[in-house]
Amino acid sequence: EAHAAIDTFTKYLDIDEDFATVLVEEGFSTLEELAYVPMKELLEIEGLDEPTVEALRERAKNALATIAQ
């Protein structure tokens, strides 16, 4: 499951495998979680700032909209 989540994140969020791995290690496994989890939870991840989190959430929401079509 972790590998599938990493693949999904790299494909749809335009991030590298290392960043995707950090997200999975922090407990995220779906685009929905990244799109809708409280921003505070993402900001608790070391190295993430508000602009990065906002961009990540926007990419996740856009990916979900694209997949739904």
Rank of each mutant, 00 (worst) to 15 (best):
L31E: 00
Y36A: 11
A4H: 12
T30I: 03
A4F: 11
V37H: 10
I45G: 02
A4I: 10
A65Q: 12
I15M: 05
V24I: 11
E25W: 09
D14A: 11
L56N: 00
F28T: 01
L56S: 00
V53E: 01
D16L: 07
E25A: 14
K40I: 10
L64K: 01
F9P: 00
L42A: 05
R57K: 12
K61M: 09
E17I: 14
E33Y: 09
L64V: 05
E41W: 13
Y36E: 09
T10E: 03
A65I: 10
L43F: 05
A20K: 01
V53D: 01
P38L: 08
L64Q: 02
E54Y: 10
E33I: 15
H3M: 14
E32Y: 13
E1M: 12
L64T: 03
E50L: 14
A5W: 07
T8P: 02
Y12A: 04
A68N: 11
E1N: 13
A5L: 10
E17M: 10
E46W: 12
D16F: 03
P38Y: 06
S29E: 08
V37P: 05
F9C: 02
A60S: 03
K61F: 08
H3T: 12
D49Y: 04
L56W: 03
A68E: 09
S29Q: 10
D16N: 09
E26L: 15
A4E: 09
F19N: 02
G27L: 02
I6K: 06
L48S: 02
A4T: 11
T21E: 07
V53I: 14
Y12C: 05
M39W: 06
E50H: 09
K11E: 06
E41F: 14
V37K: 14
A5G: 06
R59P: 02
E26I: 15
A55M: 14
A2N: 12
E58H: 06
E44M: 14
T10W: 04
V24H: 06
D7P: 06
D18R: 13
Q69I: 09
V53L: 12
K11V: 06
V37I: 09
T66G: 09
R57Q: 15
A4D: 12
F19Q: 04
E1C: 09
Y36G: 08
L48I: 09
E32G: 06
T8A: 11
E58Q: 11
E32V: 07
E58P: 00
D14T: 05
E17G: 07
H3L: 15
L34N: 00
M39E: 06
F28M: 03
T66R: 07
R59G: 07
A55F: 08
V22P: 00
A65L: 14
E44P: 05
A35V: 13
E33G: 08
Y12H: 06
A55E: 10
M39H: 07
T10R: 11
E26S: 15
F19I: 10
E41N: 12
R57F: 03
E41C: 11
I15R: 01
A20C: 02
E25K: 15
T30C: 04
A20N: 01
V53W: 15
T30M: 05
A35N: 02
E46C: 10
I67C: 05
L13T: 02
E58K: 09
F19M: 12
I67D: 04
L56T: 00
Y36N: 14
K61V: 09
E46F: 15
P38S: 13
E33N: 06
H3S: 12
R59Y: 05
V53S: 08
V37G: 15
E25Q: 14
V37L: 12
E1D: 12
E25C: 13
V37N: 11
A63G: 04
Q69P: 06
D14M: 13
L23P: 00
L34T: 01
A65E: 09
A60N: 01
A60I: 07
E26V: 14
D18K: 13
T10H: 06
F9M: 03
D16I: 04
I6R: 08
A60M: 01
A35I: 12
I45H: 04
L13Y: 00
A68Y: 07
E50M: 13
E26M: 15
L34A: 00
T21I: 11
E58I: 09
A63T: 03
P51T: 13
V37D: 05
G47F: 08
D14E: 12
K11S: 06
L23K: 00
I6E: 02
R57G: 03
L13F: 02
F28V: 05
M39F: 08
H3W: 14
D7C: 10
E41V: 15
E1R: 05
A4K: 14
V37R: 15
T66M: 14
L48H: 02
V22N: 05
D7I: 14
R57M: 08
R59S: 12
E50G: 12
Y12D: 02
K40M: 09
F9Q: 00
Q69S: 10
R57W: 05
T52P: 00
G47H: 05
F9L: 07
M39S: 08
I67L: 09
A35G: 03
T52V: 07
V53M: 10
T30G: 03
E26Q: 15
E17K: 15
E32N: 06
L31Y: 01
I6N: 03
A4R: 11
T52K: 08
E32L: 10
R57L: 11
Y36F: 11
V22S: 07
L64D: 00
T10D: 01
L13K: 00
L64S: 02
K40W: 13
E46K: 13
T10A: 07
A65T: 08
A35S: 05
E33A: 15
L34G: 01
L23E: 00
E54D: 07
H3D: 09
I6H: 05
P51Y: 12
G27H: 03
I45A: 03
Y36P: 00
L31S: 00
D18P: 08
Y36S: 13
A2D: 09
P51R: 14
T30Y: 04
E32I: 08
E32C: 12
I45L: 08
V53Q: 02
R59I: 07
F28L: 05
L31M: 04
A60E: 02
R59A: 14
E32K: 06
E25D: 10
Y36C: 07
V53R: 05
M39R: 08
P38A: 10
A68I: 08
V22Y: 14
N62W: 09
L43C: 05
E54I: 15
A4W: 10
F19Y: 06
P51N: 13
I15E: 00
A5P: 06
D49H: 04
L56F: 03
A2S: 11
V22K: 15
A63F: 05
E17Q: 11
T8M: 15
S29V: 10
V53A: 15
M39C: 06
A60G: 01
A68C: 08
L23T: 00
F9I: 03
L48Y: 05
G47C: 06
L31I: 08
A68V: 08
T30L: 05
K11M: 09
K11N: 06
F9K: 00
A65M: 11
S29T: 15
P51K: 14
A4P: 09
V37M: 11
P38N: 12
Q69W: 03
E32A: 09
K40N: 12
F9G: 00
D7V: 11
I45Q: 02
E26C: 11
V22T: 10
E46S: 14
T52Q: 09
T66I: 14
E44Y: 11
V37A: 15
E58V: 07
R57E: 02
L23G: 00
A2M: 15
E50D: 06
L42V: 05
A4Q: 14
T66S: 12
T10F: 04
D7T: 12
K61R: 12
T52H: 05
L23I: 03
I15C: 03
E33C: 12
G27R: 02
D18Q: 12
K61D: 03
E33H: 13
L64N: 01
V24Q: 03
E46P: 14
K11F: 12
E46L: 15
Q69Y: 05
A20L: 02
E26T: 14
D18C: 08
I6S: 03
I15Q: 01
E41T: 14
E25N: 15
K11Y: 11
V53H: 02
A63S: 04
D49N: 07
A63Y: 05
E17D: 07
A5K: 07
V37T: 13
E32D: 06
E17Y: 14
D49C: 05
T52N: 05
A65N: 10
I6C: 04
I15W: 02
K40D: 10
T30E: 04
I15Y: 01
D49K: 04
L34C: 02
L23W: 01
P38T: 11
A68S: 11
D7K: 15
P38V: 06
E33M: 15
L34W: 03
L23C: 02
E44G: 13
E1W: 13
Y36T: 13
M39G: 05
G27Y: 03
T8S: 07
F28D: 00
E1F: 10
I6D: 02
K11R: 10
E54M: 12
A35R: 03
E50Q: 12
K40Y: 12
E46H: 12
V24W: 15
V53F: 06
L43V: 06
T52Y: 07
E44K: 15
G27M: 02
E1A: 13
E33F: 07
A68H: 13
A2P: 08
A35F: 06
E32H: 09
L31F: 04
V24P: 00
N62R: 13
K40A: 13
D14N: 10
A2T: 13
L34R: 00
E58A: 10
A55Y: 10
E46R: 11
F19L: 14
A20E: 00
P38C: 07
L56P: 00
P51G: 12
A35C: 08
D16A: 08
D49R: 03
M39N: 07
L48E: 02
T8H: 09
Q69N: 11
A4G: 08
S29K: 14
L56A: 01
